[in-house]
Design a binder for these strands. Structure first.
Lengths: 126, 126
DNA sequence: CTATTATATAGGCGAACATTTATATAAAGG
DNA sequence: CCTTTATATAAATGTTCGCCTATATAATAG
C-alpha cells in the first residue's frame, strides 16, 4: 500500500549510519560521476583507444588513420566527429586534408594520463 | 571493378610512410586496445563510477549501496554481477548480506588509479 | 569546366546496454 | 514451518552505439 519503500530498508536500522555517512563523504556527486563516466566512455571502444593513442603522439589526417587501422573512412570520421563535439580533438585544414590532434585542454590532458596508465603510452609530444 | 580499394588510398604515395611507421610503433595492438577499452567501459557509466568509488574505500553490502545511491536493488545487483564476471569485484557472505569489495588484482589496482585521476579518489583502504 | 581525392554527413541496421518489473533463492527469526 | 529480509536472476523495454552504404561538400588537378 505504501509505495515509498518498495525495496529493502536495510539502511533504516541495520546499517551503521556512521559508516554510510563516512562513505558518502568520499562518494563523487552525480555530476562529478557523470563527467568522469563521459571521459571514460571516450575510451570505452578499442577503435577510439587506438585513435586517441595515435593522436597523443602527433596530428594525423583521416585517411592515414583509416589506413593504419584498416578501417573505412566514414567509420573514422564518425568517431572523430563525436570526439570533436565533446571537445576532445580538433582539426586544422591543410589542403584537402583534415589534420586532427588531441586537444591540450583538461579533457585531452586527462586522456593522456589515462592512456599512460592503461596502454603505457608515455607523453611523446614533439 | 577492383574492390580491394573501396576507400581513399591516401597512404599509397601521399603519406609519409616513415611517419606512419613511427606511429605504428607506439600504436597499441588490437588486443591491448581491447583490454584497455574493456577497463574503461567498466567506468563508462556514472552508476558504476560511484559504485566503484565506494568500493575502493571499503567493502559494502548491496542494500547499503542501493540506499546511498537511491537506486533499486536489482539495478545495483546487475552492475555488480557484470563487474564480478569481469573479475573486478568479489563478495563474501555475512549472514544474509553480501559484502562486496574491489579486487586487489591488476584490474582493481588500475581502476583505483583511474578513479584517482578523474574523481580525485585517493587510496583510502584501511 | 570535369575528374579525382579527402572528408563529412545522413539513414539504417543489428548489437549491446541500463533499468524496470517480476520471480527465485537463501538466510534468519518467530 | 511460515514470514521477513537480503540478494540474485530473468524477461521485457527503450535507448545508445558502432559500423555500413550512399551521398554530399570541398579542395586540387588537368
Amino acid at each position: 500500500m505504501d509505495d515509498t519503500a518498495r525495496y529493502p530498508l536495510c539502511g533504516e536500522d541495520h546499517i551503521d549510519k556512521l559508516h554510510e555517512q563516512e562513505i558518502s563523504t568520499y562518494l563523487p556527486g552525480e555530476d562529478g560521476a557523470a563527467d568522469a563516466a563521459a571521459l571514460f566512455s571516450y575510451l570505452s571502444d578499442s577503435t577510439r583507444v587506438r585513435l586517441l593513442s595515435m593522436l597523443s603522439v602527433s596530428e594525423m589526417c583521416v585517411c592515414e588513420m583509416a589506413d593504419i587501422l584498416n578501417m573505412s573512412q566514414p567509420a573514422i570520421s564518425h568517431h572523430l566527429r563525436v570526439l570533436r563535439q565533446c571537445d576532445v580533438v580538433s582539426f586544422r585544414k591543410n589542403g584537402q586534408r583534415a589534420l586532427y590532434s588531441l586537444n591540450n585542454n583538461e579533457a585531452g590532458e586527462t586522456i593522456r594520463r589515462l592512456l599512460a596508465i592503461t596502454v603505457g603510452n608515455e607523453d611523446r609530444r614533439a
